[in-house]
Design a protein around this nucleic acid. Structure first.
Lengths: 216, 216
DNA sequence: GGGGCCCTCCCCCACGTGGGGGAGGCGCCG
DNA sequence: CGGCGCCTCCCCCACGTGGGGGAGGGCCCC
């Protein structure tokens, strides 16, 4: 059975190009397309692709957040290939740290693009040198990260935690997410319970220590 | 042809150690040694090493200034590896921001030191420094750090903030420091006022963002 | 000596926070 | 279809938190 790929990029041109290149391969099949990060999670759930070719800079939800969301909430997540214009794009590193499996240059030759998809699908991290992996690992201590992973926050909870880590109060978070304060409280309580935190401060500390949020 | 390395450290012992470790490798050659930053620039010009292993704290001219000088004035600059005793040395981040390509712990195993030299020489620094500089920048976070410096916390206040950043409640801090809860509250209020934080969570965030406390 | 700063502790009070429990609507999946 | 998890919202209640003000003792330095 062929490798299925979900294309995520806000430019139709890029999607069309990727589709043309990938569909030409007998062993690769484009399962679907999304034009922004927000659409990624539901599509991944529905289509269950093997690989997601994800642009970094996108409206609504960028590739980094989308990557985090997918890896955090999907049981057997697809391999994520970050698509970028410049190889030293600042955001690429964030995406890789968020758990992406490799990156793909837009100006790469078609054969290279195909090869990249085949490689990540096969379980090989692409252009993910030891140094970078080490750097990602150095982010936060292992225990904190394990707690964060084991926590398995839902998308909403993760969103709330991120806002907590920006110093927002419950009413502020509610206004930001267009929610009732009570709803936010529910999510906050869930986050605290899952992280084993006593109060929001401890939760934010866990977020920093685990690398869930990054200083800067 | 072998990778040539220039050793820069004010302690002869360290230089001897690095030389012994590196010379034992067939593909690495120590091109020369310097005992202070001022000697670095002329030696780089003359010897044209591939890598400079540079100590941070040195007399006359420190490693940061020396790094800047080299990168600013040499046409095809060598890769610069910052040598340091402590991995969270304040100056290391400054050096990385000055353009160094990586850092090297003095207590690292010989194999790791050799590996580090090979890696920067091979240009792995293309990935390495960009993300590291981000780390450096995160410590710099200019605004957050400025706030923290401008805050001019007293010794006690800094102590209290550090414990806040470990998730402690006021009573816990009081027990830890053998103080009354009211006293802790006074200090906490002072910290919040000085940092412009509304609550302890925001204060802890400021502590992380400014590098006052470090994740991991 | 006196001023200034730090550390220590106390009062009162408003309020956001967090725990407990409950409930309806929704989409996914067996 | 029926569960199940997620998201949404509501109630009550205990309490830690943070703001306001005040106060005494110790230390350094002008």
């Amino acid at each position: 059975m062929p490798t299925t790929v979900l294309l995520v990029d806000d430019e139709p041109l890029v999607r069309a190009g990727l589709r043309a290149i990938l569909e030409a391969q007998p062993d690769i099949e484009v399962a679907g397309e999304a034009s922004d990060g927000a659409a990624v999670l539901p599509m991944v759930r529905q289509l269950r692709p093997d690989v997601v070719a994800m642009d970094v800079r996108m409206p609504l939800l960028d590739g980094i957040e989308a990557t985090r969301a997918v890896l955090r909430t999907v049981a057997e997540p697809p391999k994520i290939l970050v698509v970028t214009t410049f190889e030293n794009d600042e955001y690429v590193y964030d995406a890789l740290q968020a758990g992406a499996d490799g990156f793909l240059l837009k100006r790469a030759a078609p054969a290279e693009i195909v090869q990249a998809v085949r490689m990540v699908a096969a379980g090989e991290s692409l252009l993910f040198p030891a140094s970078l992996r080490k750097l990602a690992a150095s982010r936060g201590n292992a225990r904190a990260r394990e707690v964060m992973e084991r926590a398995a926050l839902t998308a909403r909870e993760a969103e709330v935690l991120r806002l907590m880590a920006r110093g927002m109060s419950n009413p502020e978070i509610a206004r930001t997410l267009i929610l009732g304060t009570e709803t936010v409280k529910t999510h906050v309580s869930a986050v605290l319970a899952k992280l084993g935190a006593r109060d929001r401060t401890q939760a934010v500390i866990a977020a920093y220590e685990s690398g869930f949020v990054v200083p800067g």
